[in-house]
């Protein structure tokens, strides 16, 4: 039997996934894992939008999810290009190695 999923539980799941992604960003130092955790956080934000859109049965939540998807695609392409550049320059994927600015 399937009925309407409780609004609070959907938001709770989105919050839990977001917090997991945030922990990943703060704890991990490998830059690929940081990007993966950012993907998790964006996905959780999209989940919250879709849950809210389903709660009020409006399509706006899904439209916002499509925008988040677009933004995630652009972000990950630039981010991975930066990862390749970082690896060529520093020969490591440690994010702390790139902590100093030049000039």
């Amino acid at each position: 039997m399937i009925s309407q999923i409780p609004f609070e539980h959907g938001l709770l799941l989105a919050g839990a996934l977001f917090v997991l992604g945030l922990i990943g960003v703060m704890v991990r130092r490998n830059i690929i894992f940081i990007l993966l955790s950012i993907e998790v956080m964006l996905n959780a934000a999209g989940l919250a939008f879709v849950v809210a859109g389903s709660r009020w049965s409006q399509p706006d939540g899904q439209v916002m999810f499509i925008f988040i998807l677009t933004m995630a695609a652009a972000e990950v392409s630039v981010g991975l290009a930066l990862v390749i550049r970082l690896y060529h320059v520093f020969k490591t994927l440690d994010a702390d190695c790139a902590g100093k600015m030049r000039g």
Partner: peptide, 19 residues
């Protein structure tokens, strides 16, 4: 799958195809 259960089949498909 959660999107599918929420009654949002379009974004469920997009999630699988794009993400």
């Amino acid at each position: 799958l959660i999107f599918f259960l929420l009654g949002a089949p379009f974004v469920a498909a997009l999630e699988i195809i794009i993400y």
